[in-house]
Nucleic acid binder design. Structure first.
Lengths: 198, 198
DNA sequence: GAATAATGTTGACAGTGTCAAGATAACGGG
DNA sequence: CCCGTTATCTTGACACTGTCAACATTATTC
């Protein structure tokens, strides 16, 4: 006979995270709700409180997961770009921009939402990993670009981050398409300017 | 005798916008609520519906107002920077960064919030004005920086926008202070690279 | 001055996050 | 094996939100 289906979830925390990610993908940030995630996981509305510190806790957990996907996307784009240092950095940026475009909900949680706990250790670990990927690709150019207190990677990060966000809410109201990756590459080349250090 | 105090507000729409801006400044985006703005304007909770298209309408109106302040701040910073084209562009960027730091709530409404109606004519007018200010300061450098389909101003805008946002939510979790304006200037100089066209 | 429009109020509704109290399941020590 | 303890989940409530409909009041216009 079947074992009686367990009254409790096997791993409700995980189920809630996955349900929340689905909701986020389907309905954007507004579509992700503690009660809806609970319902989708087949559980009552107050169950999540035992696994997360309220809504911010769930959002933070999802943001950590999103950062892991983000890192994986940048890694893959870099590795597909071949050996040239600039091509690798540009590949990472294209992974960045594509992720921002294709997973706007995740991106919002990762970088924008004020409801995620930026001090959470898991989140810091995940975001730090992503940061190091970009930093690593900047290293070949660091000698020429570094200021005393503001390394080049901050400039690259700012450029790609701003470019991604303005893609969503362009101040003149016309969201542009992201067929402009070559154009971004030009901007990146201007910022890097001097090429890899000899 | 006094005229009897009007039962209706003299200009409730304006009063609601000002109350909303106060709430936004005091309590951030989470502190701004239709009902609270109505209460602060001394009016019942459903009154705003006659002046705005719901909460998005109020947020959109506030975003327009915020863009006007934003433009004024950039104008002032540019005019205080003297005649040199790079100094003027850099002044605008410093106005941009200072505004983002000092008015995070406005900035969020202007560029981030999904509840703002980006198609609103007033908002488009106000944001377009701001855009033209930055564009104008980029013009002296445009000949060298322009790509066919991606003008230099988009690069400058991306850089300063990303730099501003990463100042709030740095991916490694440590929000840096904005005493780094000189460092940003270095980045901007790298992007401009060739100097004003001869 | 009376009809009409603009402006506000009241009350209700569904939805949200959160909390307290109790029910149920799993686990561990005797 | 059984009982107490703990973790997990449910139920019910609360305050708060945006929005709507019905009604009251004021201003405007003919």
């Amino acid at each position: 006979m079947d074992q009686p289906a367990p009254y409790h979830q096997g791993n409700l925390r995980e189920a809630l995270i996955l349900a929340g990610m689905d909701l986020l993908t389907e309905g954007g940030v507004a579509g992700l709700t503690l009660r809806r995630a609970a319902a989708r996981a087949g559980v009552s509305h107050a169950a999540p409180a035992h696994h997360f510190n309220g809504l911010p806790g769930l959002l933070t957990a999802i943001a950590s997961r999103a950062f892991q996907h983000f890192s994986a996307a940048m890694d893959a784009a870099r590795d597909a770009a071949g050996p040239d240092p600039f091509a690798r950095l540009n590949g990472i940026c294209s992974g960045y921009l594509n992720f921002a475009q294709d997973h706007a909900g995740f991106f919002h949680l990762m970088f924008v939402s004020a409801e995620v706990d930026r001090a959470d250790p898991d989140l810091r670990q995940a975001s730090s990993t992503a940061y190091l990927i970009l930093r690593g690709a900047c290293l070949p150019f660091a000698a020429r670009g570094a200021t005393e207190d503001e390394p080049l990677e901050v400039g690259v990060w700012s450029l790609v981050h701003g470019y991604a966000l303005l893609g969503f809410n362009l101040p003149n109201g016309q969201n542009r398409r992201f067929n402009t990756l070559p154009a971004f590459t030009d901007l990146l080349a201007r910022l890097i300017a001097d090429g890899p250090k000899p």
